[in-house]
Design a protein around this nucleic acid. Structure first.
Lengths: 121, 121
DNA sequence: AGCTTATTCAACCAATCGGTTGACAACCAG
DNA sequence: CTGGTTGTCAACCGATTGGTTGAATAAGCT
């Protein structure tokens, strides 16, 4: 029972085979056997991968006779991008504040040129 | 390679504790002990988490006496957003094409209201 | 020199993961 | 009904993971 949805999604995409499957499903829906065909693993292994993707909400499946066509649910990506963008922005803002602080300190230093190292004008 | 890096980053962020650490580092740099303080785990466990984040390129560390301040490297996020956006866009485009196709079929149907099984020519 | 603080290394453990094989269910087609 | 497809379930295996404890390293403080 993986903690939250976000953990499930990140964890699901941490596997290259699963990312590959997502990439293929972005092109078109496909059945389990179609998805398994390019890989050197058994269809059971791919079935497990699909279950992980389905549990993470990245893939949905319908029924068509004995086939189970897989469909990419791209909206789940938003969850990740929201998380990522939040902290990226936060880090960037902090960086800008630090930058401003350094500018400020440099300006102060210019007002008081007496400190240890003589500054030529 | 780059593919491996992507796996590392997704995998690193699949853990809630590690995402939490990233969130804290987005606010300010911090030492291992400072980062470990809020959690119910040992400092060694947090040290391991930081190693994972560092290997993924999400965190860098400098040296300050016996301390090892951790710093968030937010650029690595770009790797993920690039991957995500690529397939999201692809899936959306496909959806739009499907939409257009359905519109087209509906229009054809309107031209020929008999259709279905009674194929009168 | 010793003591304290900050961090990592090493070994171990239980749980999970990605993979396998083998059996089985569900569904067409003859 | 008998096969042939398509897919999942169950049990197992080796590797990895997240956690532990205990010892080791590294640097500052007397």
């Amino acid at each position: 029972m993986n903690d939250d949805r976000l953990s499930q999604v990140f964890s699901a995409l941490a596997d290259p085979t699963r990312r590959d499957i997502v990439a293929r499903l972005a092109v078109s829906d496909a059945t389990v056997n179609q998805l398994a065909e390019p890989y050197a693993v058994t269809v059971q292994a791919v079935s497990k991968h699909l279950k992980v993707l389905e549990d993470a909400g990245l893939v949905s499946r319908t029924r068509d006779a004995q086939r189970r066509p897989c469909h990419l649910e791209a909206e789940v990506f938003d969850l990740m991008t929201a998380w990522i963008e939040r902290y990226r922005r936060q880090a960037e803002e902090r960086f800008e504040r630090l930058d401003a602080l350094l500018d400020e300190m440099a300006a102060e230093e210019e007002d008081r040129p007496k400190s240890s190292r003589g500054r030529a004008s």
